[in-house]
Nucleic acid binder design. Structure first.
Length: 566
DNA sequence: TTAGGGTTAG
């Protein structure tokens, strides 16, 4: 391909390297470079380094920089911005920064903004600020590096302070500034400011760019202005994966499950391939709705379109989302099939299986998965033990549960948190060991919380233990006076014991605290869609039929000796 | 001949 001498000049070599780099063909770029062995100038080196960095191969770019230095070629102001962008660690970056100073390039604004950018990505704001302060010329790109860099590491106030300084210096914000600032208002919920930015965007004609419009969709969505977000989305001529993901997330965020799934369907029909973000937004909606059919359809689509790979970290996350959906929708058989096929399982994959089995009452299966997990020497984490302990709780494996809590730290190296204690209190409580549960609460080495006391209170109600119930109820109401469940539990307990004056008192303190009971709601997915039911509501078209069926079921349960708890 | 910013989930 490189025969005869017409590509001999360094000029052609560099252009060819650039061409290969742009096509993601770094092997060919390097071959081209090596072919021209007699005159490797700084241009050719810069082209190869830039190619590696642009293709996400920072390490190789770095190695090539070393080769350049070894060959005695002096780097220039074009070399460093690339090398800096390829730095992945603090030490590496500081070393390169030293070289920048050594070659007298620290006042170059291109080098400077690369430094600011990379320092902030690594969370080193003081170093970034220092570089920024030293630079004699500050253009809009440099300001953006500061504003967006601060925003990305969550220093929103600082980012806005820099943004206003930028305005005071008379620097006009660019499209890049706008996207960054919109993401800040999205998080802070600064709707008025966000709308002002929208006005500026229109004035400057920035609304022709897809990135700016995506950021606007996100901002309006997070500020709960679904209508505005949707208006922008529908008007967009060119929609990319960010546009779809953002508008889907907007609907998911405001609890519009149907809207989320409809938009996802539209996305597929528009021929846009979903990615990790899409899947991890949409699948939990199916799990929440227990909409197994929808979830299965999405999984089917993923298999058909090669999205169910098993190669990198993203793939593992996507597959975990699929498994979690199956587990939460109650189909452990499907969850296991997916799990079994995975070659690269991470700790979350195992945890999902343990949680799923435990949640559906297959405690011993959950413990089998746990023991397999130990056998393959997978690192256990806190979630693992929440799964294991709640499995013990739901299946009544009291002895095992006690033992796990006791050995968590010593044998498995995971320190028990409040969640673990809550699982065990719940477990002991359900099994009727109320004194032991109460003792555990009193003796545990960490602070209690309302969830823990509520678990104990629920157990007291189940087994009619008035004394511990009173303690737990007072604790729970003291720590979380706004939660309606506490009052309901307490009131039910008094009803069981016939203490009607106390029931009135509980009702009274509820109204004093302005606590209202949120009606219970459940739903089921059938062929024609999701049917929702709220406590006491008769809005469903077939309500009469359904309630008649329920009455007959209740009657049959009664005949078989079931006595309901109230 | 060659360089430095952006938006989405949890």
């Amino acid at each position: 391909m490189l025969a005869n001498g017409f590509l001999r000049s360094p000029l052609s070599t560099t252009s060819l390297i650039n061409m290969y780099s742009k096509c993601n063909q770094m092997d060919d770029a390097v071959s081209t470079f090596n072919y021209q062995s007699f005159d490797h100038n700084v241009f050719a080196y810069n082209a190869v380094i830039a190619g590696f960095i642009a293709n996400g191969l920072g390490r190789d770019g770095f190695e090539f920089y070393r080769r350049m230095r070894f060959a005695g070629v002096v780097p220039d102001k074009f070399t460093f911005p690339c090398v800096i962008r390829g730095c992945s660690g603090v030490l590496e970056l500081r070393k390169i920064h030293g070289l920048v100073v050594k070659f007298g390039l620290e006042l170059d604004v291109y080098v400077g903004s690369a430094l600011v950018n990379t320092y902030l990505k690594l969370g080193l704001m003081e170093e970034a600020q220092e570089v920024f302060d030293e630079l004699p010329v500050r253009d809009v790109v440099l300001w953006n590096a500061m504003v967006n860099g601060f925003a990305q590491i969550g220093l929103l106030e600082e980012a806005l302070a820099v943004f206003s300084m930028m305005g005071e210096e008379g620097v006009v914000p660019s499209r890049f500034t706008v996207t960054g600032v919109l993401s800040i208002f999205a998080v802070m919920g600064g709707f008025d400011n966000g709308r002002a930015v929208h006005g500026f965007v229109t004035k400057m004609g920035y609304d022709s760019g897809v990135e700016v419009l995506n950021a606007l969709i996100d901002m309006y969505g997070k500020c709960k202005c679904v209508g505005d977000a949707l208006k922008i989305f529908e008007m967009m001529v060119e929609k990319d994966i960010y546009s779809w993901n953002s508008i889907i997330a907007v609907h998911e965020h405001c609890g519009d499950h149907d809207g989320t799934l409809r938009l996802f369907d539209r996305m597929l029909k528009a021929g846009v391939l979903p990615d990790l973000v899409t899947i991890t937004t949409v699948l939990p909606v199916c799990a929440r709705l227990a909409a197994l059919m929808h979830g299965r359809e999405i999984h089917g689509y993923m298999i058909k379109n090669g999205l169910e790979k098993d190669v990198n970290v993203d793939d593992v996350q996507i597959t975990n989302a699929v498994m979690d959906m199956y587990a939460k929708c109650g189909s452990m058989r499907n969850a296991y099939m997916v799990f079994n096929k995975m070659r690269n399982k991470d700790v979350a994959s195992w945890n999902i299986m343990i949680m799923g089995y435990g949640m559906h009452g297959y405690g011993s299966k959950a413990l089998d998965v746990f023991s397999d997990m130990c056998k393959v020497q997978m690192k256990l984490d806190e979630v693992t033990f929440v799964g294991v302990l709640s499995a013990c709780s739901h299946t009544g494996l009291v002895r095992e549960g006690r033992e796990f809590l006791r050995q968590m730290k010593s044998k498995y190296g995971v320190v028990p948190t409040i969640e673990h204690y809550t699982c065990v209190v719940d477990m002991l409580g359900r099994a009727g060991h109320l004194e032991e549960a109460y003792q555990l609460v009193l003796e545990m080495p960490i602070e209690t919380n309302p969830v823990l006391w509520r678990a104990l209170l629920a157990a007291c109600r189940l087994h009619g233990n008035q004394d511990i119930a009173e303690v737990a109820a007072h604790k729970v109401i003291e720590l979380d006076p706004g939660h309606c469940g506490n009052y309901v539990l307490m009131s039910n307990l008094y009803v069981v014991n016939g203490q009607y004056d106390e029931v009135v008192e509980v009702r009274h303190s509820m109204s004093q605290q302005n606590v209202k009971k949120i009606p219970g709601c459940s739903w089921i997915e059938l062929k024609d869609g999701v049917h929702a039911f709220i406590t006491g509501d008769r809005a469903h078209p077939k309500a009469n039929f359904i309630y008649a069926e329920l009455d007959s079921l209740t009657a049959r349960l009664g005949e078989l000796g079931y006595v309901p708890h109230f």
